[in-house]
Amino acid sequence: MIKIDASGLSCPEPLMRLKAVIDQHNEIELALDSQTAVETCKRFAESKGFDVTVTSADDLFTLLIKKA
């Protein structure tokens, strides 16, 4: 499990941070704070064969990304 906090970063930095680690890990916890980043990161992870669970707390989102 690796945890990444990509909240507050401009597009496309959250996705770049996810892309940089996704091939080396089976489980990733990714913190985001914009719906746009959630949409793009979720779509990217799913395209790489991962299951994605999204939870929210206030205006912060957590993506639990696990190898399917």
């Binding site: 690796i2 909240s7 916890e29 913190a31």
Partner: peptide, 17 residues
């Protein structure tokens, strides 16, 4: 872990995850 560091939440409130 590779070259990407992990981050602890400091600016948005602790422990949101």
């Amino acid at each position: 872990m590779g070259s990407i560091p992990t981050y602890s939440r400091q600016m948005h409130g602790a422990g949101i995850l």
